[in-house]
Write a protein that binds this DNA or RNA. Structure first.
Lengths: 152, 152
DNA sequence: CTCGATGCAAACTATTTGCAGGCAC
DNA sequence: GTGCCTGCAAATAGTTTGCATCGAG
C-alpha cells in the first residue's frame, strides 16, 4: 500500500499524528477508482467497524490533498468532488451539461502541460484541472429542446 | 450593447419576460472585465437606483449562462465565480495555490480544443474550463516552508 | 388579464468550528 | 504527559425556495 506509506511520511514530515481514522479514509479512497464527495466518503465509512465522523472526513481532505494523494476535480451543485491521483495517469473530465454524466479522457497533446506552462508563464505550474463541457452521446440523441436553463 | 440584444433575444426565444433588473445585471457585468461572485454582483447593484435583491441576482445567473453571456470559471472557498464571455477571447486561469492570485492566460495550443475533442471523443464539446495550479512569482520568492495544509 | 419575475425571509445544504475527552508519540 | 485528533453539535456561508405582490406582454 504505497498510499499509506505516503500518508505516514507526510504526517511525520509535518509533525502531525497518524490515526486509524486517517488510514481508514485513505484505504477507502483507494479501494475504488471513482469520483467522490466528502459525504460519499462519510457514508461509505459509516458502515465500517471504525465509524468515522463527518468532521474527521472533512478535516482529512486537506491533509490528503497536501500529501498529494487526492485532488479536487470538480464541483457539482455546490458539492466538491475529489479523486485519488497517486498512481493515476493525468487526465481530464468530459462533463455532459445536460445529464451530468462524466467521463475521463486523455489528450496526448496535454501531457506535459504543466512543464510547458511553467516556461511560458511566470507561474511555477505543477498541475491543472481541465473540464470539457458538452453533450454526451445519449443526450445528443434525445436532442430535446430544453426549455429550462439549468445552473452551470 | 450587443450583450443586451443577446439577452433580449434569448428571453424572447424562451418565453420569458424581460425586466429592468435583468438588464441592469447584464449592464453591470459588462461594465467591467473581471471575475465576480453572486455576492459581488449583488453588492455592486445595491448602490444603483434600481436596488436588486440577492434572489434576483441568483436567479439571473443561470439565465445568463443559458444565453451564453457568462460562464462559471472557478470555485473559491465554496463560492462560485463567473466571468462574461461574450466578446472575450477563450483563455484559461492560472491560480496560485498559495495566495489565491489569479491570472488569465492563453495557450495557442488549446485554441481549437472543443473542435478537437468533439472529434476524438463521443461528446459534442462546446467549451472547456482549464485551471492551472501553481505558485505565482511572489509566492515563489517567499518560498516559506508552509506548515499548514490549506483546503484545495 | 395572465403568468413569469421580484423581494423578503425562511429553508437548505455543504462545510467549518468550539469544545471536551481520547490517544498517538 | 502534551498536544494533536476525534466526535458531537452548533455555527457559518452560499445558494435556493415559498409566497404574496408586481408588472411585462
Amino acid at each position: 500500500m504505497p498510499e499509506l506509506k505516503i500518508l505516514r511520511q507526510y504526517i511525520q514530515d509535518h509533525n502531525m499524528r497518524n490515526t486509524p481514522e486517517r488510514e481508514a479514509i485513505v484505504g477507502e479512497i483507494f479501494s475504488r477508482h471513482d469520483h467522490f464527495s466528502a459525504e460519499d466518503l462519510y457514508q461509505r465509512l459509516r458502515g465500517s467497524s471504525l465509524s468515522i465522523s463527518r468532521a474527521s472526513v472533512y478535516r482529512a481532505i486537506p491533509v490528503l490533498i497536501g500529501a498529494g494523494l487526492i485532488s479536487r476535480v470538480f464541483t457539482k451543485n455546490g458539492q466538491a468532488f475529489y479523486e485519488h491521483i497517486y498512481g493515476h495517469e493525468p487526465h481530464f473530465h468530459l462533463r455532459c451539461t445536460s445529464c451530468g454524466h462524466i467521463e475521463e479522457f486523455m489528450e496526448p497533446l496535454l501531457e506535459d502541460l504543466p512543464a510547458r506552462l511553467s516556461k511560458s508563464t511566470s507561474f511555477a505550474v505543477d498541475r491543472y484541472r481541465l473540464e470539457a463541457l458538452g453533450r454526451c452521446p445519449k443526450c445528443q440523441k434525445k436532442a430535446a429542446k430544453s426549455r429550462t436553463a439549468k445552473r452551470e
